[in-house]
Design a protein around this nucleic acid. Structure first.
Lengths: 139, 139
DNA sequence: CAAATGCCTATCAAAATACTATGAAATGAA
DNA sequence: TTCATTTCATAGTATTTTGATAGGCATTTG
């Protein structure tokens, strides 16, 4: 029931690229340093994002990565699906007994509703005073 | 981003107990056979459910397990929390940068909304013709 | 050419997952 | 009382996933 560091760090990368959108390429090194992450590990995460066409790379000195599209056109769901696989609380929903299948579908759709309606623009322009309240409790 | 067999089989057990509620104890053996699961494995899953007070056990021949409360008072969230831990898409939401923190909170609350509003009664009495439509697509 | 950067492959330790194995303890029925 | 049934407890284990680390080649800029 968890999103691993793949999805989390992948989102971190994409949010940084969104912040720098229109200002030329951003190197993984700078993202790794700014977020205290392993550059080598981020390389492994951005490879699938590049293969999926979400980012473009520019090789060589002063190279780096840029988003393939405007931040408002790329969603958190796009990123998570590439790095974590299909959004679903269980493998093979179809094989489940109907009562449970319906439960998994409801959960899946709830998660999809959030991820597919949150864009990189939303995340990059987040205003910290718009915080959700009471997030600490009733886990 | 997945619920493991712990949570899934745990729910299976609890739904079976809900179906038999009021009719004496149900053995794990019968649940394991009916669902083609390892009885030994189910034993390991029901131990935390017993410790959490969700089920009561009756030892010895013709023993088994019964729900500690009526099926309408136990939710899927109760079961999942015991077997999978707190409902949250990431560990340590508080430590995340605000934009991502808010995303995780929205996902968490969406999942909680489903799990805490689905009771064992709902699951045990599920009518298969009330199925959600279009669940196959747009994963 | 040198430095910076992306690209590629391999390796690996730790944790989680999904069981399996063994046997003791309790209980009801014969 | 004896036996089958069932829970209870602990340990072991194979496989996969996670979260990296290492080394080096390829490309581009200054």
């Amino acid at each position: 029931m968890k999103i691993s560091t793949k999805g989390r760090y992948g989102l971190t990368i994409m949010i940084e690229l969104a912040k720098n959108y229109g200002e030329g390429p951003t190197s993984l090194k700078s993202i790794a340093q700014a977020n205290d992450l392993s550059e080598h590990y981020l390389e492994q995460l951005i490879a699938p994002l590049r293969n999926a066409g979400l980012v473009k790379s520019i090789r060589g000195a002063y190279g780096g990565y840029i988003l393939s599209d405007v931040p408002s056109k790329i969603t958190a769901g796009d990123v998570i699906r590439v790095l974590e696989g299909p959004i679903t609380p269980v493998e093979g929903i179809e094989d489940e007994e109907p009562a449970k299948r319906e439960l998994w579908i409801r959960i899946r759709d709830a998660i999809k509703g959030v991820l597919d309606n949150t864009t990189l623009e939303d995340l990059a322009n987040h205003r910290d005073d718009e915080e959700v309240e009471g997030y600490m409790f009733y886990i």
